[in-house]
Write a protein that binds this DNA or RNA. Structure first.
Lengths: 169, 169
DNA sequence: GGAATATATCTTATTTAATAAGATACTTTA
DNA sequence: TAAAGTATCTTATTAAATAAGATATATTCC
C-alpha cells in the first residue's frame, strides 16, 4: 500500500534527521570532554583527529579541514609541538611547506580516550547482520562522499576553508 | 562459512569506524561554515542547534550540553539575545532560573542554512528501502541512547558537563 | 517554621585562542 | 630570468571563555 509506505518513510526521514543531529551534538560534547581530559583545546584535539584520519598533513590542509586561518593553524601547531604531540617534517613535495605528523609515542595517550566509545560502538554493531552493517556503512560513505563533492561550492567563506578529504594533488 | 564472515565483519567494523569519524569531522567543519555565514561563533550556533533539538532550555542545561562554564553560557546568551536570536523567559519551575528560547522570526534565518544538506540527505535516503532506513535509524538511536546513559560516568571533568538529552526532572 | 546548605544565574577581571595584516621563502608561470 | 602566486610564519589585536565570587531562590534538616 503505497500511501502508507510514504507516510512511514516520511516519519523515518524525520526521525533520522533528528537522530543524526543529536548524534553530531553528542559527538561535539564528547570531543570537548576528551580535550578537557587531555588538558588541550577542542581545536587541538580536532587537529590530532584529522592527522589520525588523513595521515600527515600540511598546515594549509589543516587550515582547510579545521576552518582556522593559517595563522591560527601555526599557533595550534606550536602548542601541539611544544607539548610533544606532533612534529613538523620537511615536505618533500614543496620546500615552502611542512608535513605535520604525530609523535608516535603520544598517539596512544590520545586514542585511548576513544577505547570506551569504540567498545560501545562494537557492542551496538554486534547486533547487526552483515547486510545491516553494509547498509549503515553505505549511509556514511555516501554522506561523506556528498560532502567532499561540495568542496569549493559555498558562497562567501574564508579563503582557506574547503572540505575534509585527502589533500588534492 | 564463519571465518570468512568474521573477516567481512571485521572489515566492515573498521570501515564504519573510519566513516563515522570522517562524518563527525565533516559535520564540525560544516558547522563552522554556517556560523561564519551567520557572522556568529560556532558556540553560538551550537546553542541554537541545541534549542532546535531539545526545545527551550535553561542556561544550566546549555552549560551541560555545550561544555561551557555557566559564566561562558551567560556571555553566549547575551550575544544571542542582543542579536535577536533568543530571549530569556522566566522559568515557571524555578524562579532563580530562566528558560532560553528562540525568537521565532529568526529561526528560519538559521535553519535555511541546512536546507541544502537536508536535501542531500533526502536524496541519499531516497535510495534506501524502508527496512534499510529503519536499520540506519536503529544505529543512530542506539548510539544516542548509549551516550545518554553515559552521563555522569566520566572521571575528572568540569562540574557542569554531563550529556545531551532532555533535561532530567 | 526557620536556619543552614545547596543550586542557578550572573558579574567582573583575567587569560589566551583566534584573527588580520603583512613578512619571508619558495614555486610556478610567462 | 622576472613576475606572480603560494605556503607558512610573525606580530599586534580582538574578543571568547574561564575563574572566582556575588546574588537570589530552593531545598533540607532539625
Amino acid at each position: 500500500m503505497a500511501p502508507l509506505s510514504n507516510e512511514n518513510r516520511a516519519r523515518l526521514f524525520a526521525d533520522l534527521t533528528r537522530s543524526v543531529r543529536l548524534f553530531i551534538a553528542g559527538a561535539s560534547l564528547f570531543s570537548q570532554r576528551v580535550a578537557d581530559k587531555l588538558n588541550m583545546h577542542p581545536t587541538d584535539l580536532q587537529f590530532l583527529n584529522l592527522l589520525e584520519l588523513l595521515g600527515p598533513l600540511t598546515p594549509g590542509t589543516l587550515a582547510q579541514c579545521s576552518g582556522l586561518t593559517t595563522g591560527g593553524v601555526t599557533v595550534v601547531l606550536d602548542r601541539l609541538e611544544k607539548s610533544g604531540y606532533i612534529r613538523r617534517l620537511p615536505n618533500p613535495a614543496d620546500r615552502r611547506s611542512v608535513l605535520v605528523d604525530w609523535i608516535p609515542a603520544k598517539r596512544k595517550k590520545v586514542t585511548s580516550n576513544y577505547d570506551a566509545v569504540e567498545g560501545q560502538f562494537h557492542m551496538i554493531l554486534g547486533e547487526f547482520s552483515e547486510e545491516e552493517l553494509q547498509t549503515v556503512l553505505t549511509f556514511f560513505s555516501t554522506a561523506n562522499a556528498a560532502r567532499s563533492r561540495e568542496k569549493s561550492s559555498a558562497g562567501k567563506q574564508s579563503r582557506t576553508r574547503t572540505g575534509i578529504g585527502r589533500p588534492q594533488a
